[in-house]
Amino acid sequence: MTEPVISVRAVSKRYANGVEALNKVALEIHAGEVVCVVGPSGSGKSTLLRVLNGLEEVSAGEVRVDGIPLDTHKRSINRLRARVGMVFQQFNLFPHFSVLENLMLAPQRVLGESAGIVQARALALLEKVGLSDKVNARPSQLSGGQQQRVAIARALAMQPEVMLFDEPTSALDPEKTGEVLDVMKQLAAEGMTMLVATHEMGFARVVAHRMLFMEHGRIAHEDAPVAFFDAPRNERLKQFLNQVL
């Protein structure tokens, strides 16, 4: 059995004000897997993703990426972060850079790659997400869906091994979610390891290999998509699905 790309063991996260965002979460994600996490607000989906990225420190337990423990105090965290790509709900594009510059910044500065190689890769990625004509545009000139696609391309420019998506379409108008979800479906089809926190049930059903239901900081239920949606074996999950579907 190959090393899981992501390994979470008994991870708990407690904030200073006493709120327990994660409660002994355990999870393994293997290469090529697409795992979707659903759950009510405050269930810990975002916190889980942020912990996997090193944006939040764990209070207990261990997170490993490619078998290497994620220790936020060490300098090597930056190299590890380069292997984990993250797409945020609020896009977080750099407004003072053009789209192309947004993509080129990290590969040049973190990986030290030459401008020529980085630019070629950036242009290819922009073509892949369907935004070749926006190469020199500023983020403020793009629609929400376009910005999120740029954000996905930006994360992919670092050639990560796993992509984390924190409710990528929640801030978009309904008619714009399609263009982003299409890009994500294509990524999944290409074999990218993905962990997606989302409310888009239709998307999850089609794309996921595994579904997770989180509540109160724990993984309350885990199943394959078809069983998860059509024959939920967990009461709370049943109630949740009734509310959202």
Binding site: G85, M86, Q90, A106, R109, V110
Partner: peptide, 18 residues
């Protein structure tokens, strides 16, 4: 500057100074 900017930059692997 919105926190998300620093978070996005760190997520890409940039160090705090970078």
């Amino acid at each position: 500057v919105p926190r998300g900017q620093m978070e996005a930059a760190r997520s890409l692997g940039l160090g705090r100074a970078q």
